[in-house]
């Protein structure tokens, strides 16, 4: 059974929300608070957009579009403590709009965008990071979004379900399939997907 998010769990989302609450208590106006949250969220939104697209220019456009829409729609945000998830939901919608505008019809989790991987992606110094990004980029977008929202932002499964407008069970199954694919790409598993146990702990009947 899934646990409700515990108050003592420290991750970026909780830190942000706790900070928000503190500032509300300190009497800072809602509008000013929202602008602060938005400014502080920009880098995180960009990182998420980049992990979804692996295209710096497109990611930047998506973040700008997200900021623009957030500012226009801020009166719809009733609970300032929910601003974090709300911003990421707008980002997800902006990406969906982007694909829709290019007539790339999303058909649930079967939809796959295999990002074009060019040599310039491999010019970075961190080969491990490049290998992981390549594996992430090969995931179906639906799986990629769930994996990155959980792993990079520490969103709870319930929050991811809200951001992507899908059931929690779907979040769990997409996460499971996404991580399994990454494991197969990145870790030492054999061709049948079985775990290669270290010899010293392998049990022999």
């Amino acid at each position: 059974m899934l646990a409700r998010r515990r108050l003592d769990t420290v991750d970026s989302t909780d830190k942000s929300q706790r900070g928000v609450t503190m500032r509300v208590l300190a009497g800072i106006s809602q509008k000013r608070l929202f602008k602060t949250i938005l400014a502080n969220s920009r880098d995180r939104l960009y990182r998420m957009a980049f992990s979804w697209t692996h295209d710096p220019a497109l990611a930047d456009d998506l973040v700008q579009q997200t900021c623009y829409q957030a500012l226009r729609k801020q009166r719809h945000l009733r609970d300032i403590d929910a601003a974090d998830a709300w911003l990421f939901r707008i980002l997800a919608n902006c990406l969906a709009d982007h694909h829709r505008a290019r007539r790339e019809v999303l058909s649930g989790e079967e939809f796959v965008i295999v990002e074009k991987w060019t040599p310039e992606h491999a010019t970075q110094e961190d080969q491990v990071a490049q290998r992981v990004r390549k594996a992430v980029s090969a995931l179906p977008l639906a799986h990629r979004q769930v994996v990155t929202l959980v792993d990079l932002e520490g969103f709870s499964y319930a929050a991811v379900a809200d951001i992507l407008d899908i059931p929690v069970g779907t979040v769990m199954s997409r996460l499971s399939r996404g991580r399994r694919a990454l494991r197969d790409h990145l870790l030492d598993v054999n061709a049948r997907g079985e775990v290669n146990l270290p010899a010293k702990v392998r049990r022999i009947k």
Partner: peptide, 25 residues
């Protein structure tokens, strides 16, 4: 135990891969 380690390692690899992302020009 090994499967658990693998899950954690995959999570940490993803976190590592996007710790520093290229900035847009």
């Amino acid at each position: 135990d090994v499967r658990l380690c693998q899950h954690r390692k995959v999570k940490e690899l993803v976190q590592h891969a996007y710790r520093d992302v290229p900035k847009p020009r």
